[in-house]
Structures are given as structure tokens and as C-alpha cells.
Amino acid sequence: MSESYESAFEKLENIISDLEDENISLEESIEKYEEGIKLYKYCNDILKEYEGKVKVLVEQDEELVQKDFLEGELDG
């Protein structure tokens, strides 16, 4: 897949909406479910990639230090 996160997420939302429709056939439901799983994994992979890039500046010993986003907690 080479589409943007936003485009893939919008398609996923549409699939969820379609699956909530009671007038959809079982065969179509299964096809949409499989497509939805692929889109979910694609979006999740993109988020994981960016999650590693996010940095947070944290004050430590009167200096600003860059840390990975998930290394520490933010104190409100």
C-alpha cells in the first residue's frame, strides 16, 4: 500500500460503517472485514514508525534533554 495514513484511515472508517449496516451480505461482510484488517495493520505500522521519531524535550538538571517519547512520562 502506498496511500497516505489519512486516506487509509478514512477507508477503514467507511468499512466499519458498512459493517454496522444490517443489510450487508455475509460474503460482503467477510470481504470488508479482511480489507479492514489490512488497512488497520497499515495504519498501525505508520503510527509505530512515527512513534519512534517523536521526541520530547524534558528538563533534566537545569538542561533541556531530548528523549524518545516513550522513555519517560510527562508531568502535566
Rank of each mutant, 00 (worst) to 15 (best):
M1G: 10
E3V: 08
E3R: 05
E3S: 13
S4T: 14
S4G: 07
S4D: 08
S4M: 00
Y5L: 14
E6K: 07
S7V: 12
A8Y: 00
F9V: 02
F9H: 09
F9C: 03
F9S: 06
E10R: 11
L12N: 03
L12Q: 05
E13K: 14
E13M: 07
N14Y: 02
N14R: 05
I15S: 01
I15H: 00
I16D: 01
S17E: 10
D18V: 01
D18E: 14
D18Q: 09
D18A: 13
D18P: 01
L19H: 04
L19C: 09
L19V: 01
E20M: 10
D21A: 09
D21I: 07
N23I: 12
I24Y: 06
I24L: 14
I24P: 04
S25P: 04
L26A: 15
L26P: 11
L26W: 09
E27D: 15
E27S: 15
E28K: 14
E28V: 02
S29Q: 15
I30G: 04
I30A: 10
K32L: 10
K32S: 11
Y33H: 10
Y33W: 04
E34M: 07
E34S: 06
E35Q: 10
E35I: 03
E35M: 07
E35R: 04
G36D: 04
G36L: 03
I37C: 09
I37H: 07
I37G: 04
K38R: 14
K38L: 10
L39K: 00
L39R: 00
L39N: 00
L39E: 05
Y40M: 02
Y40F: 09
Y40V: 04
Y40C: 04
K41H: 06
K41R: 13
Y42V: 00
Y42L: 08
C43K: 03
C43T: 00
N44C: 12
D45A: 12
D45F: 05
D45V: 01
I46Y: 03
K48A: 13
K48F: 07
K48C: 09
E49C: 03
Y50L: 08
Y50K: 09
Y50R: 12
Y50G: 04
Y50T: 05
Y50C: 03
E51Q: 10
K53H: 12
V54F: 06
K55R: 06
V56Q: 13
L57Y: 01
L57V: 15
L57T: 11
V58I: 15
E59A: 10
Q60N: 11
Q60G: 01
D61T: 08
D61K: 10
E63Q: 14
L64R: 13
L64E: 15
V65N: 08
V65L: 06
Q66Y: 13
Q66F: 12
D68R: 08
D68S: 05
D68I: 06
F69A: 12
F69G: 01
L70A: 15
L70P: 09
L70M: 13
L70D: 15
E71V: 13
E73W: 02
E73F: 02
D75Q: 06
G76E: 04
G76T: 01
G76H: 00
G76P: 00
G76L: 01
G76F: 01
G76C: 03
